[in-house]
Design a protein around this nucleic acid. Structure first.
Lengths: 241, 241
DNA sequence: CCAAAAGTGTTCAATCTACACCCATGC
DNA sequence: GCATGGGTGTAGATTGAACACTTTTGG
């Protein structure tokens, strides 16, 4: 055997996006109180080593369930990170020793995107704290987690382009066109006129107006809409055009 | 240490596309003559285990260079395959023993797309045969290589949508609009009118007409064009619209 | 009344689509 | 001349962008 071929540990890390009430993208960061770890370095992306008979997709689904308590979450693998030095920081080596009770030399990780309604109750089986963090205020994280987050932003944009329906994973079940607009424009970077956006949405048969309006707003109340996944799948299995 | 956390071998596998003179997509399959291996199972995707201090992108670049003799090839990581049973076929286990001189239990692979002009001389340092194979005639391959190829087709289509310029990696340096048209329509599935395609191409400043025409064709000779990467990068860093 | 946002209508320009028409070449 | 494909022109339809206008609500 060419001894240069090596075995490594393989993990999954999940970037879970949420959209808050101030129209900002957030991600979920976790914390476990491990002895002797400096607190400011203890926030991180949720993740785990994969188990011996586990596919990476299953590992990611497991991590997400342990994270939120939600059984089935939308997820999408987006990149394998395998820089040989990605886990060579001293603190990171220490952390792996604590977390996995083992000296680990190298670890490659497969990164996943996931989406969560920000009002959904988070019911973590595993972490001491699970917090939403706005993407412009993400602290310095261990390993290459900051890089992963940066690249996940590009991926979520691509994802919306190829499957517009996943945007509704981030919105409440009942939403206004303005909410949809603000989410879409924060993800698409294009400058869209909200009035034209209104008209466009009106042409989508899978976005269904409800007989329910906003209340207690100091302007004309907006109508609530809901997303109909069945109609979407039947007719619109392509991009938003 | 939770003994369910395991180390595995990690490999890269590359799906290299080419576009032949009959307007068909082809991929490169390799063969090494190992003792005792049944010949019909010996074709496979080019790939390799990663080395101990090697990133996966570097491993893929190494595999491509060993495969073709070309130093820098365009490549794109597209998916990690980690089904725990993907290498449990008996022949596959035997093959790994021969190839790597070692018993390997589990192996996960990171799949890459690459593109090659089909007329480029293939100068392999490592394989006994390296052959182009049209995508509709790919034989049954070991591991999950058939699945990887099926999914790579979806990926190459997405890739063209997000970066049109990579299409020129598949065409000769001098090409006709018809060649470009046939490649594009074999990848995009849309039914485009070739005459409108002509006009559209004429508006792209990065596709430059040459003073050179086809010869010995039984119809009006078509003009050759070339792709100007610099002009493209400056002006068109987005989709074909 | 005013401010603010909802939601509709109108207009102009850009783009897409279909197809007519002429050109060049080999047989 | 004819078949085949190259390449341009035109007209109508579709779509997109800008923005005016009306509606609703709280203060």
């Amino acid at each position: 055997m060419n001894s240069n071929f090596i075995q490594t540990y393989v993990s999954v890390d999940c970037v879970v996006f949420g959209f808050d009430h101030e129209n900002r993208l957030n991600i979920l960061l976790v914390q476990k109180y491990l002895d002797e770890m400096p607190v400011e370095r203890s926030k991180r992306l949720p993740g785990s080593l994969i188990l011996s008979h586990e596919d990476v997709d299953d590992a990611a689904q497991r991590v997400l369930t342990e994270l939120t308590g939600i059984k089935k979450m939308v997820l999408k693998q987006f990149k394998c990170y395998a820089d040989p030095n990605r886990a060579s920081n001293e603190d990171d080596i220490k952390w792996m020793g604590k977390e996995y009770k083992h000296q680990i030399e190298r670890i490659i990780t497969v990164a996943y995107l996931s989406l969560c309604k920000i009002d959904h109750k988070i019911n973590s089986a595993k972490y001491d704290t699970v917090d939403w963090c706005t993407i412009d205020k993400v602290p310095t994280l261990p390993f290459d987690h900051n890089k992963i987050i940066t690249e996940s932003l590009i991926e979520i944009r691509k994802w919306i382009e190829t499957d517009f329906s996943i945007i509704f994973e981030l919105l409440p079940k009942k939403f206004t066109i303005r909410q949809l607009y603000q989410l879409y424009s924060s993800l698409s970077e294009k400058n869209i006129d909200i009035k034209n956006f209104h008209k466009k949405i009106a042409t989508f048969s899978y976005i269904i107006p409800l007989n329910e309006m906003e209340k207690n707003v100091s302007h004309r109340a907006a109508r609530f809409y809901k997303f109909d996944a069945k109609v979407y799948k039947k007719n619109y299995n392509k991009l938003i055009k």
